[in-house]
């Protein structure tokens, strides 16, 4: 069994200023962590390896040299091999360029040792687009299952798997052929406390570093800023919406409720047409 897990190092934006446990500072110069969903993806891969009785878990990331720390944490969690795809030329990548690089890297890894399953986090807590996993699946032309919460069956001989995914209405159970790409929710596997000997081994582990030209020659037109057509106009946190008005039929009667609702809609509509008046709160 060969699993590849794509992980991203992200700033710890949990935005708590006080460590709930110790009451001490959460640092300025916010510390970097492994994207939380990605750690669960690593754990799922390691558990799958244990379940089928062996294999290899390869973790990859595209990021600055500092991202090696994140890979080492994955080695602690049980991954066997870690690759850091790092080059100034990758800088400024959007989801399109990121997907291109990761897809090409996975193809190369697959040529060395065929890959049965690829795991991504459901989304990165900084970028939050949830596009990179699907982008990679599309480029590799393999089945994609997003928001996976469990791998019920994993049959390397029949080359099929049964996966549960979370949807708004409930849970979907899907059968897929292998290789498959999953983007995972945290439920996929609880992250275990890594044993001390693994921490010690990982502390001495050095991830492989791939540049833009070796061992894979990436198309310079498709990486970094050049390969990134996305233009971010503005980044902002949407204003928190208040709870809204509850109009009860029991209290007012149907007609009054409809009238009230219409009035509210009209008011909102007027505001949309004339945003500068800003009278509606």
């Amino acid at each position: 069994m060969h699993a590849v897990v794509a992980i991203k190092q992200v700033p710890d934006t949990s935005n708590v200023r006080i460590d709930p446990e110790t009451g001490t500072l959460i640092r300025e110069g916010v510390p970097a962590i492994v994207n939380p969903y990605d750690l669960h993806a690593v754990e799922a891969a390691v558990q799958l390896k244990e379940r089928v009785g062996g294999g290899q878990v390869t973790v990859i990331t595209m990021g600055p040299p500092k991202a090696a720390e994140a890979l080492i944490e994955c080695i602690e969690q049980g991954a066997d091999r870690a690759i850091l795809i790092s080059d100034r030329k990758f800088g400024g990548a959007d989801t399109l360029a990121t997907s291109y690089v990761l897809a090409r890297a996975i193809e190369t890894i697959n040529a060395e040792l065929p890959v049965d399953i690829i795991l991504f986090g459901k989304q990165a807590i900084d970028g939050d687009t949830a596009q990179v996993g699907p982008g990679v699946a599309t480029r590799l032309n393999i089945p994609l299952i997003t928001y996976a919460i469990a791998i019920e069956e994993f049959d390397l001989e029949a080359r099929t798997a049964i996966v549960h995914r979370r949807v708004e209405q409930g849970i979907e159970v899907l059968q897929t052929s292998l290789p498959v790409l999953l983007t995972v929710e945290k439920e996929i596997a609880p992250v275990r406390h890594a044993p001390l000997p693994r921490l010690i081994a990982a502390a001495r582990y050095q991830p492989e570093v791939w540049s833009a030209t070796a061992p894979v020659v990436f198309d310079p037109q498709q990486i970094g800023l050049k390969g990134s057509p996305t233009v971010v106009g503005k980044a902002f946190t949407p204003e928190q919406r208040s709870g809204g008005e509850v109009i009860s039929v029991a209290d007012l009667g149907l007609n009054a409720v409809v009238a009230r609702a219409l009035a509210v809609i009209e008011q909102a509509h007027v505001r949309n047409l004339q945003p500068e008046t800003g009278v509606v709160s």
Partner: peptide, 9 residues
């Protein structure tokens, strides 16, 4: 002893 599995040094 530490809070890690196999955590004695």
């Amino acid at each position: 002893d530490t809070d890690r599995p196999e955590g004695s040094v």
